[in-house]
Design a binder for these strands. Structure first.
Length: 489
RNA sequence: GGUCGGUUUACCGAGUGGCUAGGUAGCGGUCUGCAAAACCGUUUACGGCGGUUCGAAUCCGCCACCGACCUCCA
């Protein structure tokens, strides 16, 4: 199971060689969505990033277990008057059961992920299905003396934990700074310190989602599910934990503290964080009016969108930026991505038609090496794509007859594109469905033949008019030496 | 206000102490009845001010701007 794969570990703040704890197995846990609203652009980034990681680990030959949770246990909303549960609040507005809301948005999320060609994880555990495990986890932390109970709620004692452990190591926080910079909480506070966090929360009378426990009828604290479920399915020590950069603090920091408190050792070997997205240089927020759901993006129905962008355009666009950089969305950038993707896919089609020569004038092995160097370097997909576009140029040049490739090199190149474009990057050809395509093809060919007749009679005005009219309905004709080609524009 | 990260050519977006990223757009050329595609060539770069260095866009400092987090929101 040799590999040259290195990933950036947020914990060490440097790139490290990927060496799984138990080869040939690799364990990956990623924080999934909270299902209380439609999936948006912000959901797509981590999904695509870690889908890429999942695919590459499998490509390297690892037996990967990929766990991505669904958060369906609501948590208190701080800007709500009633302190209502997010999911509960939505349920009241829509007169639905909380679990009905969960189901609805979970279905949407799954559909959108499928559209983005994001592979389903090996296990998709739901927080509501692991209440027992979370309670057992709390008991362990209480046994270790690092949690305390107040009025039916249980809190993690960060100060006591920090005597023997480094709370803040992942996010670079210093406890003293947290103490002074924390905002004062209104009302009575049960916590000993503002930076303590809830492991179990007693439910208020109007709170719908509640479970019995040794401490009170209530619900688990919001950091707990990931600790409990990752360890249940991946073991007390596992390889990679991923999520958005916004989760680094406090969520992941608290996870480290909880797991260390409960198990006596840290669970995660590599922490990976994807960066955020912006729209026109601004962060996406409902209050800024630039909040775009994936369905809106795919349909183009949103005031900011000049057109619809296909799921593969979105995926390709995200892959053109490195996952640790901010990705900025704009109509201009997405249109550029759309065209770039089409060029790539066209070349894939051309590649199948290439005829081998006796020898090669291009270095295909070198290209292959560069592709692996790029992906091995902390999933550097922008560089990988630049290498693949070099390949696109190679393909087109061979097609034009200005370069040659041997049968061996042609095979390597075909495998290379198949592996990287479809297998690892997870792109797919989005051309129209087959039956529609057949009819269109027959019709277009009919018109082309009529135009060829006009051309044979040198009736240029007629042939030009046909071409222009076809262009108006989205069919572009190209007169090549070998005949007429056409494509949808 | 605090912590951390960023500021690259028209747009998006990599990278590096001296050597072409790539995509999209523009311009010129090849091909072509014309156009398109493809190929070839090509233009405006590394936020500002200092410092280190033979040499910095790449290292250091300060300033400006942007973002994430600092919330019992996930």
């Amino acid at each position: 199971m040799q590999n040259n794969f290195s990933i950036y570990n947020s914990l060490s703040r440097r790139k490290e060689p990927f060496e799984p704890l138990h080869p040939p197995f690799a364990g990956l846990y990623v924080c999934g969505p909270t299902v209380y609203s439609d999936a948006h652009l912000g959901h797509a980034r981590p999904a695509v990033t870690f889908d890429l990681l999942y695919r590459y680990l499998m490509h390297l030959g690892y037996n990967v277990r990929y766990v991505r949770n669904i958060t369906d246990v609501g948590h208190l909303e701080n800007d709500s008057d009633e302190g209502e549960d997010k999911i509960q609040k939505k349920a009241r507005l829509e007169h639905l059961e909380p679990m009905e809301v969960v189901q609805k948005y979970m279905n949407t999320y799954h559909r959108n992920m499928d559209q983005l060609n994001v592979l389903p994880p090996s296990i998709e555990p739901r927080a509501s299905g692991h209440i027992i495990e979370q309670q057992e986890f709390i008991k362990k932390i209480i046994e270790s003396g690092l949690a305390y109970e107040v009025n039916g709620s249980v809190y993690f004692d960060v100060l006591k934990y920090s005597q023997d452990h480094n709370y803040g190591k992942l996010s670079g926080r210093v406890l003293e700074d947290l103490q002074t910079s924390s905002r004062a909480l209104e009302g009575t506070d049960e916590k000993r310190n503002s930076f303590d966090f809830a492991l179990w929360k007693k439910a208020s009378p109007e709170h719908l989602m509640r479970w019995p426990s040794p401490w009170s009828e209530g619900f688990p604290g919001w950091h707990l599910e990931c600790s409990a479920m990752s360890i249940k399915y991946l073991g007390e020590r596992f390889d990679i934990h991923g999520g958005g950069m916004d989760l680094q603090f406090p969520h992941h920091e608290c996870e480290i503290a909880q797991s260390t408190a409960a198990l006596g050792e840290e669970s995660v070997k590599y922490w990976m964080h994807n960066n955020m997205i912006t729209i026109g240089g601004q962060k996406m927020a409902r209050s800024l009016g630039n909040f775009i759901t994936l369905d809106q993006l795919f349909s183009g129905i949103h005031p900011l969108l000049e057109q619809a962008y296909s799921p593969m355009t979105i995926r390709f666009f995200m892959l053109q930026a490195h996952y640790r950089s901010v990705a900025d969305f704009s109509n201009e950038a997405l249109k550029a991505a759309e065209k770039g993707l089409r060029r790539l896919m066209k070349a894939v089609g051309t590649l199948k038609m290439l005829k081998p020569s006796d020898s090669s004038t291009l270095d295909i092995s070198g290209l292959k090496s560069k592709c692996y160097e790029a992906i091995d370097d902390d999933l550097n997909t922008p560089v990988l794509l630049s290498c693949l576009f070099d390949g696109v140029r190679y393909i087109n040049s061979v097609n034009d007859g200005t370069e040659r490739l041997s049968e061996t090199d042609l095979t390597i190149l075909s495998e290379l594109f198949g592996t990287f474009v479809f297998g690892i990057l997870g792109l797919k050809d989005e051309e129209e469905n087959m039956e529609q395509g057949k009819l269109t093809e027959d019709l277009v060919n009919l018109v082309i033949n009529m135009r060829q007749d006009a051309k044979a009679r040198k009736e240029w005005a007629v042939s030009d008019k046909i071409r222009e009219e076809l262009a108006k309905i989205g069919i572009t004709l190209k007169d090549t030496k070998d005949g007429v080609e056409w494509e949808k524009s």
